[in-house]
Structures are given as C-alpha cells and as structure tokens.
Write a protein that binds this DNA or RNA. Structure first.
Length: 595
RNA sequence: GGUCCAGUAGCUCAGCUGGAUAGAGCAGCAGCCUUCUAAGCUGCGGGUCACAGGUUCGAAUCCUGUCUGGAUCACCA
C-alpha cells in the first residue's frame, strides 16, 4: 500500500535531513484536494520546529528527498505548507493489474479466532415492527456482514422478548374484545392483529384511569389501581405459575406474531444464526444474582428485594430482584450475557440497541465487573440514534409509527411508478419487473437508513417519499446496471477483455481518479468494521458510482479506437461494477443487471 | 435537578484522530440525449459550522461556559 510506504519514507526523510525522530501523530498523510496537482499531501507545519526553516523550504527539502528515494513518487509541488506528491503511473497500473483478477480485493483474510457475537432486532412480541426496528435490523445485519468481511467470524443472534407484562396486555385485550378473531378470520398479519390489541389495551386502560380521576382519585394511584392493569398483572403471575390456559393463549398469540415477523424479516433480507427466547432464559440471571449476594457485591433489603449499590461509581442503586423474587430486565440481561458467553466464548459481545438504553448498558457492564466476570469488557453497546418523525418520536401505543410492512409496500409502489414514468420497463417480463421493483425499493430504503452515521438521530418525513435520484441506493444500482450494459455489449460482440494484461504509460485524468477511489476499498472495509459503521461503506459506494459516471460521461469505452485503451476501460468498468456490487451487498442491497 | 448525546446551506446528510477557499444530495434556476442506459452529466445561486471565550503556526473538529433540542436517571422492557 502506497500510503504506508510514503509514511515510512517521510519518517526516514525527517531523520536523515533534520536528525530527529518524529512522533507517529505528526506523520499525517491525506489525499490531495482535487483542485491541486497531486495524489497525496503531506502537511509540513509540524516539522518546522525540526527544520528551523520556513514551510516552503522544508516542503521542498522533504519533497526532493522523497523523489530521490522512491520510484513511486514522480513529482511534487509545494503550496504554502502543503507538499503535494504525485504517485507514478506504474504504481497505479500495477495496482490495477493486481486487483483485476482478485475477487477478494478489499476483504480481510479469514481468521481462525474467537467470534464476535452481534445481537440485534430483539423485538417484543406484542406489536408489529416499525421504522425504528427497521434501522436496528438493517444496522445489525450490515455490521455483522462488514465484520465478516474483515475476516472475523460472526454470530448473529436475536433475543426475542416474548414474556412480560407488555405481552400480557395484548393477550388480555384480545381475550376481552377479540371476539375469537384470528389472522385467518381477519386476513391480517398476526403481528398486526396482536398489535391492535396492545393499542386497544392502552386506550381502555386510559379510559379507566380517567374515570377514576373524575371520581376523585389522584393520578398516580389511579394508574396503579385501574382494574385492567391489575388484571394484566394477575395474568403475568399466572403465566409465571405456569397456568395452562394462560400459557396456551400466550403460545397461540406469540405464534401469530412469529409468523408475521418471519414475513417481514424475510422481505427485509434479515437472518440470524441463533434465536434466544426470553421465556427460556429469564430464569438464568437469578443464579448470578445469588452468586453476587454470596460475593457480597449485592445486598438484600428488608422486604427481600435484591440491589446493587452503584453510588460509588457515580450511579444509583439498581434493583436486581423484586421482593416477590421475580426478575427484572437487568436480571435477565445478566443471565443472557452469561449464557451467550458460555455458548460462544466470543471476543466481543455486541448489542445493537438504541441510545435510549445507554444507561442500562453502563450498568450491565458494571454489574458484570462487580461479579468479576473477566469478559465484562467484551460487551459493547452499539448505540444507535432514534428515527424521528417531524412530530417527534414514534410511539407504538399512540399509533404514531411508520409500519415496516407499509413502508416497504409504499417504496415498492414508488419504484414501480418511477420506473414506468421513465419508460424503462418495456423489455421486462412481469416477473423480472417485480424483482426489479423489489430490488430498487429495498435499495432505496436500506441505503437511506444506512448512509447515516449509526450514532446519530435521523429524520424521516413520511410526507416526502424517499428519493431515487442523487445520493441514493437506486443511483448506485443504476450505475451498476449501466456498467453491466456496456460489458454485455462487449461480450455479445465476442470481445474478450478480461484475460488480457494491459499496460498504459499514460492515464487519463478520469481513469486515474476512478482508480484512486477504488484503491480505498480495503481501508473503507477496515474502518467500517472497526467503527461498526455501514455509513462509511455506503458513502464509499456513492463516491465510486459518482466517479464512474463522470468517467463514463467524459470518455468512450466501446467506441475507443485504441485497442489497449478499450480493454483497459472495460476492465476498469468491470472492477467498478464488482466493487459496487460487493459494497452494496455489505449493506444488504442487491444490484440489478439492467434497469 | 444529575448524567449523557446532539446543534454544519431552505430540507436531509458528509466532513477520518485539528490542516489549504467547509462538501454532497434534494428543492430552485440554466444547459447537455444521431457516444456505450438522461434514475445520468455540467454550471449558477445558497454558510457568522448555535453563541461567547480559550488552547496554537492553524479550530466545524480539542477545552470551558451559555443557549436550544433529545435521551436517561422505574419493583417497564
């Protein structure tokens, strides 16, 4: 890699010319801005103290040294304190020839090491998936693929929150007002049906609270003593006691939800290596709490509830077991963490969970440390930002959510009508057209979400449909199809461009800049893997596509008269298409052969 | 109130661990299809990087404070 070569030479230069060892952070190399001549730029200000000369002189001395000592550096220019270096044509040609046959360019070598376990999705089985879940699912899946692309083994896991008071609420509402309705009888997805009763519960519950308040009860008391809530609590107790009728109902309704979720997951292209169910793991945390009591890091209050005092760590006291012995969220998470560690002995345990739970994960890590679990530091919370609507946060109970299925339906319609408006559907069979619309609609949606830095809150305005032009998934898909069209034409003409080795002594500006962008692929995958950021891959794919379109517009490929040059451009187009396809795959986006 | 996160063009977002005149897309305006796909390309307009200090050769980026918005501090998950 040329960057490391230059850095190395730069250190050598400073030492030879000025007799000093520069520290690592002073040796910075960046890409030359397009308005200047050159490929890479060294900022020389940090070396002025060593050279005791002005920036121009220093830059010239270093520049001369680099040119004299490296065949790869063919030229340099100095503007103020910036030393712009030109990398030789030979280097770029060599890079090109190496990459052409290498389908694994950019990817890390598979390593035989402990896996990274990535938990994502983790839905509650009382309501359908909405846009917030979509972000979670896409992020989790993509991060897993990117880490894999770095050669690190990955396990994708899902922890389904299938029990608890919130589940009982929808069960109770269905029992009361459901009238025996089923997904079949209402011709509705199971998760949607169950979700309706979750909302219904909340509505009826609020009515009860209001009535109680009107009768003179204070608000807090009313919330806790509304008959519906008491009934839900009773149902939860029955569930925990293994009451057959409640368990039957629970199984039936959860199954409806799973069937519904499967449809949505499948449509989004999301999968898992293992699915954990909270109902099967919720008891396992208790043993660890006992362990903590034994070690004296937790303590019991008079009423029998168990706590951990985190005030020395600047946090509050944390409840771990209720007075009646039932477990809470944190108890379960301690348990599942241990379980997962036992299952995989992972290098990292990554949790893709919204940033509203930052505190929860701080506490979780701290508790595990107090339990002296050596793997506590393996836990990483991939804390992503909320998806907000113009009105603010989405709330399931209040119905202010963008439903995942509906959104994909709408995107599909937009893809269809956009394609039809452009009149590009002529030569497609109905089935091909359908596949294309699916590809484009999901591409637009996934790219829209993944191109944003995971850590940041993002805005979605349902009134404005997601774009299909500009910095979008379809733009990149289009660029891919465009390249494939050219390559197809070459194939059809019986023109064999792949097996030839070409060597050009001169590169056109657009050929060169496209190569320079493609050259970044390995660093992008590395950085995206380190930072768990699909956004870096998305932005890279956009840069590649944009650069190719400029190349495509400025130069001819098939009509190029010089045979060698024609082959070179076809090969360059080939690498570009492959890189686009591979980058997009890491985002879970497919690219079409034609569109 | 404590803690944490954010504030960049009308809108949605980039801007790597401090470097050159802060970049894209959308929206608006003006061009380019007898060159291989115009979901494209080219150009124009649009900025006190919330505000005020500080650190230094240099700050959107680091530090302090202020303002604004969000999250969280549950015997919910």
């Amino acid at each position: 890699m040329i960057e490391t070569t230059i850095i190395h030479l730069l250190r050598q230069a400073i030492f030879e010319i000025y007799g000093q060892e520069p520290s690592e952070d002073l040796l910075q190399l960046q890409k030359t801005r397009p308005e200047f001549q050159g490929d890479y730029t060294i900022v020389v200000f940090p070396f002025l103290k060593m050279s005791r000369k002005n920036p121009e002189q220093t830059a010239n001395e270093i520049g001369n040294y680099l040119m004299d000592n490296s065949p790869e550096i063919t030229d340099f220019n100095v503007i103020k304190g910036f030393l712009n270096l030109s990398v030789s044509n030979e280097y770029w040609m060599r890079f090109f020839t190496n990459v052409l046959p290498d389908n694994t360019f950019g990817f890390g070598k598979p390593q035989d090491i402990a896996p990274v376990v990535i938990e994502y999705s983790s839905p509650n089985t009382n309501k359908p998936l909405h846009l917030g879940h979509v972000r979670n699912n896409l992020l989790g899946w993509s991060v897993a693929e990117i880490v894999k692309a770095n050669g690190i083994p990955v396990k994708k896991v899902n922890l389904v929150n299938d029990r608890g008071i919130h589940i009982c609420k929808s069960m109770l509402a269905w029992q009361k007002w459901g009238d025996g309705s089923t997904p079949e009888s209402t011709r509705q997805k199971g998760d949607k049906l169950v979700g309706e009763y979750y909302v219904r519960f909340d509505q009826e519950y609020k009515k009860e609270i209001n009535t109680l308040i009107e009768n003179g009860m204070d608000a807090d008391k009313a919330k806790n003593s509304a008959p519906l809530l008491l009934e839900a609590k009773l149902m939860l107790k029955k569930w925990e006691d293994g009451d057959q009728e409640v368990r039957e109902l629970w199984k039936k309704m959860n199954q409806w939800v799973y069937t519904g979720f499967d449809v949505t997951y499948h449509r989004m292209g999301i999968d898992f290596d293992k699915i954990y169910y909270e109902s099967e793991t919720y008891l396992s945390g208790k043993a660890l709490v006992e362990e903590g009591l034994g070690k004296g890091v937790f303590y019991k209050k008079e009423d029998g509830s168990v706590w951990c005092d985190l005030t020395p760590d600047g946090l509050d006291e944390k409840l771990l077991l209720r007075a009646d012995g039932t477990s809470v969220y944190m108890t379960q998470d301690i348990g599942t963490a241990q379980l997962r560690y036992d299952d995989y002995h992972p290098d990292k345990l990554v949790y893709v969970v919204g940033n509203e739970q930052n505190y929860h994960f701080d506490v979780l890590k701290l508790l595990l440390k107090k339990l002296r679990k050596p793997w506590a530091d393996a836990i990483e919370h991939l804390s992503y930002g909320m998806v907000e609507l113009p009105q603010g946060k989405m709330k399931s109970r209040e119905g202010t959510v963008v439903d995942a299925d509906d959104l994909m339906d709408e995107m599909y319609q937009t893809a269809k009508s956009t394609t039809e408006t452009l009149g590009k559907f002529d030569h497609f069979s109905e089935k091909e057209a359908h596949e294309l619309y699916k590809m484009l609609s999901l591409g637009a949606l996934k790219y829209f979400i993944l191109k944003v830095d995971p850590k940041k809150t993002m805005m979605f305005n349902p009134a404005e449909s997601i774009d299909f032009t500009g910095n979008t998934g379809p733009f990149i898909q289009y660029t891919h199809a465009r390249i494939k069209s050219v390559l197809r034409k070459a194939d059809e003409a019986g023109f064999n461009y792949l097996d030839q080795v070409v060597d050009l002594s001169q590169l056109d500006e657009k050929e060169r800049s496209l190569l320079v962008v493609l050259h970044d692929f390995p660093q992008v995958i590395k950085l995206a893997g380190d930072q768990f950021s699909p956004a870096l891959v998305a932005n890279f794919a956009y840069d590649v596509a944009k650069e190719f379109n400029q190349f495509y517009h400025a130069l001819v490929i098939l009509k190029e008269e010089n045979e060698t040059r024609k082959i070179f451009r076809l090969q360059l187009a080939f690498i570009t298409a492959r890189t686009l396809q591979q980058s997009m795959r890491l985002l879970g986006i497919e690219v079409p052969e034609r569109m």
